[in-house]
Protein backbone atom coordinates (compact mmCIF):
# COMPACT_ATOMS: atom_id res chain seq x y z
CA UNK A 1 0.00 0.00 0.00
CA UNK A 2 1.30 3.46 -0.90
CA UNK A 3 2.13 5.63 2.10
CA UNK A 4 -0.12 8.64 2.58
CA UNK A 5 1.76 11.88 2.00
CA UNK A 6 -1.20 13.91 3.18
CA UNK A 7 -3.41 12.54 5.89
CA UNK A 8 -6.31 14.36 7.49
CA UNK A 9 -8.15 12.71 10.34
CA UNK A 10 -10.99 14.01 12.47
CA UNK A 11 -10.01 17.55 11.54
CA UNK A 12 -12.27 20.12 13.12
CA UNK A 13 -11.92 23.88 13.04
CA UNK A 14 -14.33 26.44 14.34
CA UNK A 15 -14.18 30.23 13.89
CA UNK A 16 -16.43 31.60 16.60
CA UNK A 17 -19.89 30.29 15.89
CA UNK A 18 -18.96 29.02 12.45
CA UNK A 19 -17.93 25.40 12.14
CA UNK A 20 -15.59 25.64 9.15
CA UNK A 21 -14.35 22.04 9.12
CA UNK A 22 -16.16 19.22 10.83
CA UNK A 23 -14.46 15.87 11.55
CA UNK A 24 -12.85 15.70 8.14
CA UNK A 25 -10.99 12.55 7.08
CA UNK A 26 -9.13 11.88 3.86
CA UNK A 27 -5.69 10.98 2.64
CA UNK A 28 -3.59 11.50 -0.45
CA UNK A 29 -0.97 8.95 -1.46
CA UNK A 30 2.37 9.76 -3.05
CA UNK A 31 2.15 10.75 -6.68
CA UNK A 32 -1.59 11.33 -6.60
CA UNK A 33 -3.14 14.52 -7.87
CA UNK A 34 -6.09 15.05 -5.59
CA UNK A 35 -8.74 17.70 -6.09
CA UNK A 36 -10.51 19.27 -3.16
CA UNK A 37 -14.00 20.14 -4.31
CA UNK A 38 -16.78 21.98 -2.63
CA UNK A 39 -19.01 25.02 -2.86
CA UNK A 40 -17.98 28.34 -1.31
CA UNK A 41 -17.74 27.99 2.44
CA UNK A 42 -17.21 24.24 2.26
CA UNK A 43 -14.01 24.54 4.31
CA UNK A 44 -11.49 23.78 1.55
CA UNK A 45 -9.19 26.73 2.19
CA UNK A 46 -9.33 26.25 5.96
CA UNK A 47 -8.33 22.62 5.47
CA UNK A 48 -5.36 23.65 3.33
CA UNK A 49 -4.36 26.33 5.84
CA UNK A 50 -4.36 23.81 8.69
CA UNK A 51 -2.34 21.43 6.57
CA UNK A 52 0.49 23.95 6.07
CA UNK A 53 0.46 25.30 9.64
CA UNK A 54 -1.23 28.65 9.09
CA UNK A 55 -4.31 27.75 11.11
CA UNK A 56 -4.48 25.64 14.26
CA UNK A 57 -6.97 22.78 14.40
CA UNK A 58 -9.44 22.58 17.28
CA UNK A 59 -9.55 18.80 17.07
CA UNK A 60 -8.09 16.07 14.93
CA UNK A 61 -5.00 16.60 12.86
CA UNK A 62 -3.63 17.16 9.39
CA UNK A 63 -0.37 15.40 8.63
CA UNK A 64 1.92 16.33 5.80
CA UNK A 65 4.92 14.18 4.86
CA UNK A 66 4.21 11.95 7.83
CA UNK A 67 3.89 14.52 10.56
CA UNK A 68 1.84 17.42 11.74
CA UNK A 69 3.21 20.62 10.25
CA UNK A 70 3.82 23.34 12.78
CA UNK A 71 4.70 26.94 11.91
CA UNK A 72 8.28 27.11 10.75
CA UNK A 73 8.55 23.37 10.20
CA UNK A 74 11.76 22.55 8.26
CA UNK A 75 9.74 20.25 5.97
CA UNK A 76 7.92 23.28 4.59
CA UNK A 77 10.95 23.54 2.29
CA UNK A 78 9.64 20.40 0.57
CA UNK A 79 6.18 21.84 0.02
CA UNK A 80 5.10 24.27 -2.69
CA UNK A 81 2.19 26.33 -1.45
CA UNK A 82 -0.32 28.68 -2.95
CA UNK A 83 -3.20 29.62 -0.66
CA UNK A 84 -6.01 31.72 -2.14
CA UNK A 85 -4.75 34.40 -4.49
CA UNK A 86 -1.04 34.96 -4.98
CA UNK A 87 0.21 37.87 -2.95
CA UNK A 88 3.49 39.72 -3.01
CA UNK A 89 5.20 42.87 -1.80
CA UNK A 90 3.62 45.26 -4.34
CA UNK A 91 6.43 47.78 -4.69
CA UNK A 92 9.10 45.17 -5.42
CA UNK A 93 9.69 43.46 -8.76
CA UNK A 94 8.58 39.89 -9.42
CA UNK A 95 12.19 38.72 -9.43
CA UNK A 96 13.00 40.55 -6.19
CA UNK A 97 9.90 39.10 -4.55
CA UNK A 98 10.90 35.56 -5.46
CA UNK A 99 14.42 36.05 -4.23
CA UNK A 100 13.49 37.71 -0.94
CA UNK A 101 10.87 35.07 -0.22
CA UNK A 102 13.34 32.31 -0.89
CA UNK A 103 16.17 33.86 1.09
CA UNK A 104 13.93 34.58 4.08
CA UNK A 105 14.05 30.84 4.71
CA UNK A 106 17.82 31.00 5.08
CA UNK A 107 18.58 29.14 1.84
CA UNK A 108 20.99 30.58 -0.71
CA UNK A 109 19.39 31.77 -3.94
CA UNK A 110 21.69 29.44 -5.88
CA UNK A 111 19.76 26.46 -4.46
CA UNK A 112 16.43 27.60 -5.88
CA UNK A 113 15.06 26.08 -9.06
CA UNK A 114 14.97 29.46 -10.71
CA UNK A 115 14.89 28.20 -14.31
CA UNK A 116 11.75 26.15 -13.78
CA UNK A 117 10.14 28.91 -11.78
CA UNK A 118 10.83 31.55 -14.40
CA UNK A 119 9.66 29.33 -17.23
CA UNK A 120 6.41 28.69 -15.34
CA UNK A 121 5.98 32.38 -14.63
CA UNK A 122 6.56 33.13 -18.29
CA UNK A 123 6.71 36.82 -17.52
CA UNK A 124 9.65 37.72 -19.76
CA UNK A 125 11.00 41.17 -19.04
CA UNK A 126 8.00 41.88 -16.82
CA UNK A 127 9.68 39.82 -14.11
CA UNK A 128 11.71 42.96 -13.37
CA UNK A 129 8.64 45.18 -13.15
CA UNK A 130 6.96 46.05 -9.86
CA UNK A 131 4.32 43.51 -8.91
CA UNK A 132 1.73 46.25 -8.44
CA UNK A 133 1.73 46.67 -12.22
CA UNK A 134 0.89 42.97 -12.79
CA UNK A 135 -2.49 41.63 -13.85
CA UNK A 136 -4.16 39.00 -11.68
CA UNK A 137 -3.07 36.31 -14.12
CA UNK A 138 0.57 37.44 -13.96
CA UNK A 139 0.47 37.37 -10.16
CA UNK A 140 -1.03 33.92 -10.24
CA UNK A 141 1.74 32.65 -12.52
CA UNK A 142 4.36 34.25 -10.31
CA UNK A 143 2.70 32.52 -7.34
CA UNK A 144 3.00 29.17 -9.07
CA UNK A 145 6.63 29.95 -9.82
CA UNK A 146 7.21 30.66 -6.13
CA UNK A 147 5.57 27.36 -5.21
CA UNK A 148 7.96 25.50 -7.50
CA UNK A 149 11.19 27.21 -6.40
CA UNK A 150 12.09 24.45 -3.95
CA UNK A 151 11.48 21.53 -6.39
CA UNK A 152 8.74 20.46 -3.97
CA UNK A 153 7.73 16.90 -3.11
CA UNK A 154 4.23 18.12 -2.37
CA UNK A 155 2.20 20.91 -3.92
CA UNK A 156 -0.70 22.42 -1.99
CA UNK A 157 -2.57 24.75 -4.29
CA UNK A 158 -5.74 26.69 -3.67
CA UNK A 159 -7.50 27.65 -6.89
CA UNK A 160 -4.25 27.65 -8.88
CA UNK A 161 -5.83 28.67 -12.20
CA UNK A 162 -7.92 31.49 -10.81
CA UNK A 163 -7.47 34.59 -12.96
CA UNK A 164 -5.72 32.77 -15.79
CA UNK A 165 -6.87 32.76 -19.39
CA UNK A 166 -7.78 29.44 -21.06
CA UNK A 167 -4.32 29.01 -22.61
CA UNK A 168 -2.61 29.64 -19.28
CA UNK A 169 -5.02 27.29 -17.53
CA UNK A 170 -4.07 24.55 -19.93
CA UNK A 171 -0.38 25.21 -19.30
CA UNK A 172 -0.96 24.93 -15.55
CA UNK A 173 -2.81 21.66 -16.00
CA UNK A 174 0.06 20.31 -18.09
CA UNK A 175 2.50 21.50 -15.45
CA UNK A 176 0.60 19.72 -12.69
CA UNK A 177 0.60 16.52 -14.71
CA UNK A 178 4.34 16.89 -15.27
CA UNK A 179 5.18 17.39 -11.60
CA UNK A 180 2.93 14.48 -10.73
CA UNK A 181 4.70 12.25 -13.23
CA UNK A 182 7.96 13.22 -11.57
CA UNK A 183 6.62 11.79 -8.31
CA UNK A 184 5.28 14.89 -6.59
CA UNK A 185 1.99 14.72 -4.75
CA UNK A 186 -0.53 17.45 -5.50
CA UNK A 187 -3.51 18.59 -3.48
CA UNK A 188 -5.46 21.34 -5.18
CA UNK A 189 -8.76 22.97 -4.56
CA UNK A 190 -10.77 24.31 -7.42
CA UNK A 191 -14.20 25.48 -8.36
CA UNK A 192 -13.56 24.34 -11.91
CA UNK A 193 -14.91 20.84 -11.94
CA UNK A 194 -13.77 20.22 -15.50
CA UNK A 195 -10.28 21.09 -14.33
CA UNK A 196 -10.41 18.58 -11.51
CA UNK A 197 -11.72 16.01 -13.94
CA UNK A 198 -8.89 16.64 -16.38
CA UNK A 199 -6.03 16.94 -13.92
CA UNK A 200 -6.85 14.91 -10.84
CA UNK A 201 -6.65 11.20 -10.30
CA UNK A 202 -8.56 11.51 -7.03
CA UNK A 203 -11.02 13.93 -5.51
CA UNK A 204 -12.36 14.83 -2.10
CA UNK A 205 -15.78 16.45 -2.06
CA UNK A 206 -16.63 18.69 0.89
CA UNK A 207 -19.75 20.54 1.85
CA UNK A 208 -20.32 22.65 4.95
CA UNK A 209 -17.00 21.52 6.37
CA UNK A 210 -17.76 17.84 6.08
CA UNK A 211 -16.62 15.08 3.83
CA UNK A 212 -19.25 14.17 1.28
CA UNK A 213 -17.28 11.77 -0.88
CA UNK A 214 -13.73 10.81 -1.67
CA UNK A 215 -12.13 8.46 -4.12
CA UNK A 216 -10.92 8.12 -7.66
CA UNK A 217 -12.43 10.73 -9.94
CA UNK A 218 -13.64 8.10 -12.38
CA UNK A 219 -15.40 6.28 -9.58
CA UNK A 220 -17.08 9.45 -8.40
CA UNK A 221 -18.23 10.26 -11.91
CA UNK A 222 -19.29 6.72 -12.68
CA UNK A 223 -21.45 6.24 -9.63
CA UNK A 224 -24.46 7.69 -11.37
CA UNK A 225 -25.39 9.62 -14.51
CA UNK A 226 -25.85 8.61 -18.09
CA UNK A 227 -23.89 7.22 -20.99
CA UNK A 228 -24.45 7.37 -24.70
CA UNK A 229 -23.84 4.10 -26.51
CA UNK A 230 -23.72 3.31 -30.20
CA UNK A 231 -24.35 -0.39 -30.78
CA UNK A 232 -24.77 -2.80 -33.70
CA UNK A 233 -28.36 -3.73 -32.75
CA UNK A 234 -30.35 -1.03 -30.99
CA UNK A 235 -33.49 -3.11 -30.33
CA UNK A 236 -31.66 -6.04 -28.73
CA UNK A 237 -29.39 -3.70 -26.81
CA UNK A 238 -32.42 -1.91 -25.37
CA UNK A 239 -33.87 -5.20 -24.18
CA UNK A 240 -30.59 -6.29 -22.59
CA UNK A 241 -29.95 -2.99 -20.89
CA UNK A 242 -33.45 -2.70 -19.44
CA UNK A 243 -32.90 -5.98 -17.62
CA UNK A 244 -29.68 -4.77 -15.98
CA UNK A 245 -29.78 -3.75 -12.33
CA UNK A 246 -28.56 -0.17 -12.00
CA UNK A 247 -30.03 0.96 -15.32
CA UNK A 248 -32.87 3.36 -14.71
CA UNK A 249 -33.96 4.21 -18.25
CA UNK A 250 -32.97 3.54 -21.83
CA UNK A 251 -33.90 6.17 -24.39
CA UNK A 252 -33.42 5.86 -28.12
CA UNK A 253 -31.33 8.69 -29.52
CA UNK A 254 -30.47 7.62 -33.05
CA UNK A 255 -28.05 6.40 -34.01
CA UNK A 256 -27.48 5.20 -30.42
CA UNK A 257 -29.01 4.92 -26.99
CA UNK A 258 -28.91 7.20 -23.96
CA UNK A 259 -28.72 5.07 -20.84
CA UNK A 260 -29.45 6.55 -17.43
CA UNK A 261 -27.52 4.63 -14.81
CA UNK A 262 -27.47 4.53 -11.04
CA UNK A 263 -24.77 2.55 -9.33
CA UNK A 264 -23.58 0.49 -12.28
CA UNK A 265 -20.21 1.02 -13.92
CA UNK A 266 -19.93 1.78 -17.61
CA UNK A 267 -17.62 -1.17 -17.97
CA UNK A 268 -20.37 -3.48 -16.64
CA UNK A 269 -22.81 -2.15 -19.25
CA UNK A 270 -20.32 -2.79 -22.02
CA UNK A 271 -19.62 -6.27 -20.66
CA UNK A 272 -23.35 -7.12 -20.64
CA UNK A 273 -23.76 -6.00 -24.25
CA UNK A 274 -20.71 -7.89 -25.42
CA UNK A 275 -21.90 -10.98 -23.52
CA UNK A 276 -25.18 -10.71 -25.48
CA UNK A 277 -23.08 -10.60 -28.67
CA UNK A 278 -24.04 -7.01 -29.45
CA UNK A 279 -21.33 -4.91 -31.03
CA UNK A 280 -20.41 -1.77 -29.11
CA UNK A 281 -19.02 0.99 -31.29
CA UNK A 282 -18.79 3.94 -28.92
CA UNK A 283 -19.41 4.62 -25.23
CA UNK A 284 -19.46 8.24 -24.10
CA UNK A 285 -19.90 9.30 -20.50
CA UNK A 286 -22.45 12.06 -20.55
CA UNK A 287 -22.33 12.47 -16.87
CA UNK A 288 -19.38 14.71 -15.97
CA UNK A 289 -17.99 15.54 -12.57
CA UNK A 290 -20.14 18.64 -12.39
CA UNK A 291 -23.30 16.54 -12.35
CA UNK A 292 -21.83 14.12 -9.85
CA UNK A 293 -20.66 16.97 -7.63
CA UNK A 294 -23.99 18.76 -7.66
CA UNK A 295 -25.75 15.48 -7.01
CA UNK A 296 -23.50 14.69 -4.07
CA UNK A 297 -23.73 18.15 -2.54
CA UNK A 298 -27.51 18.36 -2.89
CA UNK A 299 -27.83 14.86 -1.49
CA UNK A 300 -25.60 15.91 1.41
CA UNK A 301 -27.88 18.87 2.10
CA UNK A 302 -30.96 16.67 1.82
CA UNK A 303 -29.34 14.14 4.13
CA UNK A 304 -28.58 16.89 6.61
CA UNK A 305 -32.18 18.09 6.50
CA UNK A 306 -33.36 14.53 7.04
CA UNK A 307 -30.98 14.13 9.97
CA UNK A 308 -32.24 17.43 11.34
CA UNK A 309 -35.78 16.13 11.19
CA UNK A 310 -34.72 12.82 12.71
CA UNK A 311 -32.70 14.60 15.33
CA UNK A 312 -35.80 16.53 16.27
CA UNK A 313 -37.71 13.27 16.40
CA UNK A 314 -34.86 11.69 18.31
CA UNK A 315 -34.98 14.42 20.87
CA UNK A 316 -38.62 13.67 21.25
CA UNK A 317 -38.31 9.90 20.92
CA UNK A 318 -35.05 9.36 22.78
CA UNK A 319 -32.89 7.98 19.90
CA UNK A 320 -29.91 9.58 18.18
CA UNK A 321 -28.98 9.46 14.51
CA UNK A 322 -25.65 10.17 12.80
CA UNK A 323 -25.58 11.77 9.37
CA UNK A 324 -24.76 9.23 6.69
CA UNK A 325 -22.05 9.86 4.14
CA UNK A 326 -22.43 9.29 0.45
CA UNK A 327 -19.11 7.58 0.11
CA UNK A 328 -15.59 7.51 1.40
CA UNK A 329 -12.42 6.61 -0.42
Amino acid sequence: MTEAVISVSGLTKRFGEVLAVDSLDFSVAQGEVCGLLGPNGAGKTTTLRVLVGLVFADAGEARLLGHRVRPGDPDLNRVGIMIEESAFVPYLSGARNLRLWWESGGAPWANADVDTALSVAGLGNAIDRKVKTYSQGMKQRLGLARALLSRPDVLVLDEPTSGLDPGEMREVRQLLRRVSEQGATVLLSSHLLAEIEQVCSHAVVMDKGRLVAAGRVQELIGAEGSVYIEVSNVRRATTVLKKLAGVRRVVSEPPGLAVEIDGIKRSDIVAALVHARIGVETVTARHQLEDAFLGMVSASTASELAVGAQGKGAAEGGTTTRRSRLGEG
Binding site: L54, G72, I81, E84, A87, W101, R146
Partner: peptide, 12 residues
Protein backbone atom coordinates in the same frame (compact mmCIF):
# COMPACT_ATOMS: atom_id res chain seq x y z
CA UNK B 1 -1.06 42.62 1.06
CA UNK B 2 -1.80 38.94 1.72
CA UNK B 3 1.93 38.22 1.75
CA UNK B 4 2.14 37.33 5.45
CA UNK B 5 0.80 33.83 4.86
CA UNK B 6 3.53 33.22 2.32
CA UNK B 7 6.19 34.43 4.76
CA UNK B 8 4.80 31.99 7.31
CA UNK B 9 4.97 28.95 5.07
CA UNK B 10 8.74 29.30 4.91
CA UNK B 11 10.69 27.16 7.37
CA UNK B 12 10.97 30.09 9.75
Amino acid sequence: WGNLRYMLVRPV
